[in-house]
Simulated scan of single mutants.
Amino acid sequence: MKYKLIHKTQYRYFEKVNNYHSLVCLQPQTMVGQICKSFSLEISPKPADITQRKDFFGNIIHYFSIHIPHQELQVLATSEIESFPKKNPFYRDSISVEQAREIIWNTRALKIELLQYILPSPFINWDDEITLFAKSCFPENRPLYEGVANLCHKIFSEFKFVSNYTSIYTPIKTVLRERKGVCQDFSHLAIACLRSLGLPARYVSGYIETLPPPGKAKLQGTDASHAWISVYIPQLGWCEFDPTNDMVPQERHIITAYGRDYSDVAPLKGVIFSSGRHTLSVSVDVLPVA
């Protein structure tokens, strides 16, 4: 599948902003199963310079500063992506939770490499209640891959997707209690469950092509950023799961970045020199290309 991806972010400030510094994490990855054929970043007001680098996790980050007074900021990211079918492992090829923990924790180099995805991170922590929620999905000596699929199915079945019900600062325990949230909440919960069992899991940010109801045209700007999880399974490597949609990501999933949680891969992170409130609007289009 080939896609044109358009991500537009617009800030409006009630008071003038004199200086603005930002990190942008919007360029899709080029990796196995996906090629980013082009990427452009248009910013208004226009910054003097845009600098590109790779962060600690291997994501492509752009940095810019604006030093002129302004009350509106627009960031338009446009990409062309080619996505390919992904091969799914079979449950029987997966080792058990107990075997996975033994390999990870007793292999020094592997443990050091994966430790950042096992320990708590800014948006992910857990307690006994979360561990108990997780354990029911991992019967003893059952394949780890199957257990992760069970966990994602449990979240999909027991939780309701409600737009704008939470914010990025909503605690995981609140999501667990209310049984409501959005994709980033369900991904954070799934990762917390896995880490509570001593298993490495990371956060994936990106996009998914949404399909309109039968007979209806797709509306512009109605797509959205998406999030899912990636779990390290010895002998299989990193395996991805989408708890929001209860599926294994395929061609319609476009990967932007990997991190410990949302804080590592936020689309825009900035510092402004101003006072007063602001409004934010975001529109996303994931458009198939013939």
Rank of each mutant, 00 (worst) to 15 (best):
L280R: 08
H278S: 00
P28S: 12
L76R: 06
I112T: 12
K218H: 05
H21K: 10
I233R: 05
Y13N: 03
D127R: 01
A109N: 08
E15N: 08
R101E: 13
Y203Q: 07
S196V: 05
L197T: 07
I208W: 01
I68L: 04
F161W: 11
T131M: 12
Q220V: 14
I124K: 04
L211N: 05
N245K: 09
D261I: 13
S230A: 11
W228D: 00
E158H: 10
R101C: 11
P267K: 01
D242A: 01
P85D: 06
M247K: 15
K86L: 01
N150Q: 10
P47F: 12
V75L: 03
I172M: 07
H21I: 15
H70D: 04
P171R: 07
E15F: 07
L189M: 00
A224L: 02
K135M: 06
F123S: 13
C137V: 15
P28V: 12
T51I: 15
I118H: 06
E140S: 08
S196C: 08
V284Q: 03
D246W: 06
V248P: 00
P213A: 04
L280I: 09
D55S: 11
Q116M: 14
F241P: 00
L236W: 14
L236R: 12
R179N: 13
V204Y: 12
H188A: 00
L144H: 09
L176D: 01
D246Y: 01
L41P: 02
K216F: 00
I208E: 01
I233F: 09
V148C: 12
P120M: 12
F57I: 13
Y20T: 13
V289P: 11
G147C: 09
L268G: 02
P139G: 10
I172G: 03
L280Q: 09
T51M: 10
T9N: 01
R12F: 01
H67E: 14
T78G: 05
E98T: 10
K87Q: 09
R12Q: 08
I168D: 11
S79I: 14
M31A: 12
V162N: 13
G276N: 01
L280G: 08
F123H: 09
R101Q: 09
Q71A: 04
S167Q: 14
Y63G: 07
E240A: 07
A290L: 13
Q71F: 02
I61L: 14
L5D: 04
D49S: 06
P234E: 12
D127I: 05
Q250A: 06
H70R: 05
Q116G: 14
F56L: 12
T9D: 02
L236E: 15
D93A: 02
L197S: 14
F159E: 10
S163E: 01
Y117V: 02
S263Y: 15
C183I: 09
T256S: 15
C36H: 09
Y20P: 04
P69C: 06
D185Y: 08
K8A: 03
V265I: 15
A134S: 09
P120N: 14
S22F: 13
T174P: 11
